[in-house]
Amino acid sequence: MSAPARRAAMLVAIVAALAIGAAFLKRSDVYLLTLTMVYLMATFGLNLTVGYAGQMSLGQAAFFGIGAYVAAIALKAGVPFLAVMPIAAVACFVIGLALGFPALRVQHHYLAFATLGFNVLVYLILRNEEQVTGGTYGISAIPRPTILGVSFEGHLAYFHFTLASLVALGALLWWLLRSPWGRAFAALRDNPIRAESLGVNITAYTLLAFAIGAACAGVGGVYYASLVEFIEPGPFHFSTSLMMLLAVIIGGSGRFYGPVVGTIIIILLPELLRGSSHEALKFMQKWYLVFFGLAVVALMVWLPGGIVSLADRFRRRSTS
């Protein structure tokens, strides 16, 4: 089997194992897996901005939140789920363009500053504009979708629905990055100056990457609202943006599967540890963020390419 075929077969096997295996898991574990996949939608999008366009964004949680609030309000008003998703995605895309256009003139750490500020502002609005967002009370009783008469109310059904959607979103991004248009992204990442000389409009592409990344977060937000069935401003604080950024970077920014590894580390692992009653694991849970923080520092020093790049290292070593 060729390498890509082998990789595709492995992916299919993993997705199938997840889809079937979930039926044997506890309700709370299924919830956790679903939550991880929801965050993964946002970090996949962020990877586009950070990994491929090389920009640092600290505002992904704001788009995640905008998506969630748009979904909560629309779903409660009776708008069907299939209509809500594009609405949230387009809203985030447009806001991403509006924010990115002026901010990208200055680039790099300035974009980080601007997106961070944007996130704090969105958080304040979510908390204070009570008539629209429910303020600190949040919005509760957000319905789960029923599509073509099929209800995704149950935890397993919703898990499968989210898994299918995540695979679809992943496939879309994969195709995007492989298309001639998407190859410009890779060129951008690898050598911006050369890309420019080849006629790639850097600003336009970076802006698009940023806005598409924002739209992905918006879609993730829609699934989040429907999963938790309740939202309030807390989860969309800029500290979530920090964690998302760290997830992309420790996983391996600019590598397609990087965010998967990173999101498991920041969402799934700590939650699993939290639930354990074993003494050693309890200790781990208490100190998890300490190890995590130190690991980030160490990773930056020794393995700036992220965890996924480890595989490359081994491969290179074994072939040479």
Binding site: L246, L289, G293, V297
Partner: peptide, 28 residues
């Protein structure tokens, strides 16, 4: 010192990680 040659961004990320580690150490 070990990071400065990698440029601004890795160092920013490292200080973010450092912030989390320091905060969590005090807390735990």
């Amino acid at each position: 010192d070990p990071l400065i040659r990698h440029g601004v961004i890795p160092l920013v990320i490292a200080t973010l990680g450092l912030a989390i580690a320091v905060k969590s150490t005090v807390r735990a």
